[in-house]
Write a protein that binds this DNA or RNA. Structure first.
Lengths: 217, 217
DNA sequence: TGGTGTTTTGTGCACTTTACAATTAACTAC
DNA sequence: GTAGTTAATTGTAAAGTGCACAAAACACCA
């Protein structure tokens, strides 16, 4: 068996949400030395004693450091190299979670930053965020991933607006409805009165919608 | 700084090629202990002293162990866990390379296995191969990745056949031509006489076609 | 109680894209 | 020069998409 020094292994999570009509990423102040105190992607070491795999490691970090258990979490890509971390050769397995503000809410000092106006970030975190945004925009064209930006139940009009904000483009309402409904990734649930107008049908993500998200990995 | 035991870090490469009209994966007999001698995905440790990054590590493994430098190489996904490798907690960053038989040729005891009739593979290599095939089939719908299954120059008819073999479905010749030509990912070069019939135009991948492949990461 | 404003939802049609079939083009071999 | 074979193009029907407008369903107000 070869005896090489092994790289540092971490997981970092890109939490994307919609706030003030813009796509934003959640940043946490770093609690350990490289870049102590600076805002960065939440992350942590892979702990071989307690983590069963990479995604479980990411979920543990989210649970322990931020007290959250997001509905959506998928592997994004891995970033490794000799110089990306001053501690030495490191591998960061990056994850992407798409969520709505309520899922993010109560926790510690999470700060939001628009993905197109990031503050300076340590390591290669800016690159990781860019990859996450590309992934979300891509998947918007063939999956319901952007639906995680909304609460568990939502109207077609809300979903329509979210897709437009994610893609940064106008989408035809009629075509959008036709396409979404025939994809069968969302299912109707009840009714609702939106204050003062025609009530909109409520939808939820189909139980098996997650399967559709596997297309990239 | 936390003091945790770090996982083993390796790279594994899925080499996909077309042989006997079927999509096949190249397997190398393992040269070290877990599963010594058994066919498996070519791979090796990440070497922090010599590798600058993850993709460079994969290229080094291919160069040193197989004497090859493939035209196509992209990160696939990472597979990690406590039980996938008997040596302990391990992370394998998997790469995908799509190539033609000539690129693969002279080397050592590489063996081909059809992706839909794999022999028993050690670790989670069967799962990694499955992910690679999904990725290639997916990208076939919007990129020229399958073109790497052909030599540097090829005809539209050859490309057409390759797409059909990759997707396992019939594609309309006329629509295929229109679509491929308007995507501008291949460019014409010369002429050629295919033995006994109307000569077909030769094409090559556009120099910047690689950019298009970034859509998944 | 009926009209008005507003948002959701559905419909009709032009236009574009794709599927399918058939035709033309270009060569070799005999 | 003709038959045979593959490459490439053209034409038409079907399917999908974009766009404008119409219908439906409420709250609110006179």
């Amino acid at each position: 068996m070869a005896e090489h020094p092994t790289p540092i292994a971490t997981v970092d999570i890109v939490l994307l949400t919609l706030a003030e009509g813009r796509l934003q990423v959640a940043l946490a102040p770093r609690v350990a030395e490289p870049a102590l105190g600076q805002p960065a992607l939440p992350g942590g070491y892979v702990r071989t004693e307690e983590d069963a795999g990479l995604e479980p490691a990411a979920r543990r970090v989210l649970r322990d450091k931020l007290g959250m258990a997001p509905r959506s979490l998928e592997q994004l890509a891995s970033f490794g190299g000799a110089t990306r971390d001053p501690r030495g050769w490191s591998i960061s397995v990056a994850f992407l979670s798409v969520l709505n503000l309520d899922e993010l809410a109560p926790g510690p000092a999470l700060r939001l930053a628009p993905v197109d106006a990031l503050p300076p970030l340590p390591f290669d975190h800016a690159e990781i965020v860019a990859a996450a945004v590309r992934r979300l925009r891509n998947k918007a064209s063939y999956s319901a991933l952007p639906a995680f930006l909304l609460p568990a139940q939502f109207t077609l009009a809300e979903l329509h607006r979210v897709y437009e904000q994610v893609l940064g483009a106008r989408l035809d309402p009629a075509s959008f409805r036709r396409k979404i409904e025939e994809q069968r990734i969302i299912i109707p649930v009840g009714e609702r009165r939106a204050g003062a107008h025609r009530p909109a049908r409520l939808f939820a993500l189909a139980p098996d919608a997650a399967r559709e998200f596997d297309r990239t990995i």
